[in-house]
Amino acid sequence: MRATGIGSFPGDTQRDFDEALAVVVGELAGEHGLPFVPEVPGRGAAAGMIGRTVGLLGELDADLQPAGWRLTGTSGAPAVDQRRARSLLAQDLDAVEEQTEDYRGGFKTQLTGPWTLAATVERPRGDRVLADHGARRDLAQALAAAVTDHVADLRRRLPGAAPLVVQLDEPALPAVLAGSVPTASGFGRHRTVHPPEASEALGWVLGAVRDAGAEPWVHCCAPDAPLTLLRGAGARGLAVDLGLVPAGGHDVLAEALEAGDSVVLGVVPTSEPSAPPTEKSVVEGVLRWLDLVGLDLEQVAGSLLVAPTCGLAEAGGAWARRALGLAASAARSLGEGR
């Protein structure tokens, strides 16, 4: 049984990133943890989930506008903001490489998935990429190519990482499927993307992760997460907020575990509640869920992970550390049968 985190931490400086990385490595490096590359989006748009991923898109240029990231073409001459995002990620990975020297074990990184990118990033002439079938296809394919290069870079930096996990964050996917993403004007909604197209684009990116030798996971903590679609597209790991799993979703998670795929149960609050959970209550919650779906802990312990319900960027620094530590201690207790 292992613990991990979804990705983000509070803070707004490089020192905050270094401290977040120290917490991640300190809590999760070991038999019962899956460390990851933390994100500290408070440092600016280049450090956020969208900016980090846009920075990796070698086949597409982008710049930063008041409304957010915008594609600008395929000249191969990225604007200063995209170069800044690339440089900041390289700096973060330098720190990861330094703090994990001689590390052996699993390691995770996170990127924004193709549909959340399409619902967030603008086309050169305005409105979201989501509005244009060809543009969203090009964006997904560019992301697939970027993933290949990113995994190769991580392999070089973390030669002892096995398995290497790439988590695609898709918080906007349910809205994309429901046709509820607002247009730039705010007066309309983008058309629904039907499941076959959504699955195909995800499949390109998840397949690129797999072909690069890493495990493809998807995180979606929004209500109505399309878990069956994600598995069908090639996700070999599903990360969810356990309190938001849709009707029928618990059976999908159980099927994934029985098939040997990974499931990350988000069970620790991302902001400090008035009555914080204890290690015992987290452990009991996981055991109750296993009983609900008819699975034995010993049977699935190698594939089941516990984590905070979502990213910790909006948490206070003290709670972010405590939340990750709570997930780690619960995983140790479950793994050791205490």
Rank of each mutant, 00 (worst) to 15 (best):
V264A: 02
R191G: 13
P171Y: 12
L173V: 00
P174T: 02
G248L: 04
L177E: 09
S281C: 03
P269T: 06
E255A: 15
V193N: 09
A256W: 04
A201H: 15
V240D: 05
L229P: 06
A172G: 13
W289K: 14
T278E: 07
V300T: 02
T192A: 12
R210P: 01
G207F: 03
L230T: 09
E258L: 14
Q299A: 12
V218F: 05
V218A: 06
A301P: 00
A178G: 08
A222L: 05
W289D: 10
G294N: 11
S262K: 05
E298M: 12
A239Y: 05
A254I: 10
V268Y: 02
A233V: 03
L244Y: 12
T183S: 06
L177S: 03
S180K: 07
W289M: 12
G260W: 06
A172T: 03
H194K: 14
V245Y: 01
A212K: 13
T228F: 09
E284Q: 14
V267K: 08
V245T: 08
A225E: 05
G243F: 03
G266F: 10
P273H: 01
V293H: 04
E215H: 14
S185F: 04
T228Q: 14
L173M: 02
G294L: 13
A233C: 10
E279H: 02
L206W: 03
G237E: 06
